[in-house]
Design a binder for these strands. Structure first.
Length: 151
DNA sequence: GCCAACGTTGGC
DNA sequence: GCCAACGTTGGC
């Protein structure tokens, strides 16, 4: 079992939306490095920390699980979709997504500030300057710590 | 709303 | 294959 972190802007899709839906296709990722993680490495049962960016407070707001491994992202084929990519074709898709299932919402956000201050989370990528990856792996010991930080 | 840092594009 | 220009991300 591996840990991951997925960023989202709560104005477009929040932890509350996921709680309501219980399950969602995590689509719209248009970055090759993130795509590779999604396509090649995310497995059913992996735990995913949901991170709210561009909001107040910024930080990790809950946990989800991978409940379906990668499949082509059909939103890339839809001309009317915001994430439409003319380079992606039905028989040779470029973009992929996994399905995520809701696990829990933290009572309190683990803020980016708190993450940066916590010695046990030293080196965590999401706290590094200029990291724009929207999907990234989390070290096991960091993941374990994040899991027990809020009950 | 600003803007630094980054990824992508496209001309050469 | 370089790299300037551009668009986007995302913290502040």
């Amino acid at each position: 079992m591996n840990y991951w972190l997925c960023k989202t802007e709560p104005t477009s899709y929040s932890i509350d939306d996921l709680k309501r839906d219980q399950r969602t296709e995590w689509n719209g990722v248009r970055n090759y490095q993130a795509r590779n993680f999604i396509r090649d490495d995310m497995k059913v049962g992996d735990k995913v920390f949901i991170y709210h960016s561009n909001t107040e407070p910024i930080g990790i707001v809950g946990i989800a699980k991978v409940c379906q491994e990668s499949h082509p992202d059909i939103s890339a084929l839809d001309k009317k979709d915001n994430h439409y990519d003319p380079k992606s074709k039905k028989d040779s898709p470029i973009w992929f997504n996994v399905d995520l299932c809701f696990v829990k919402k933290y009572k309190e956000t683990i803020t980016l500030k708190a993450i940066k201050k916590d010695d046990r989370l030293k080196g965590i990528r999401v706290a590094q300057k200029g990291v724009r990856l929207s999907v990234m792996p989390i070290d096991t010991e960091h993941g374990r710590h994040l899991e027990i930080m809020t009950k």
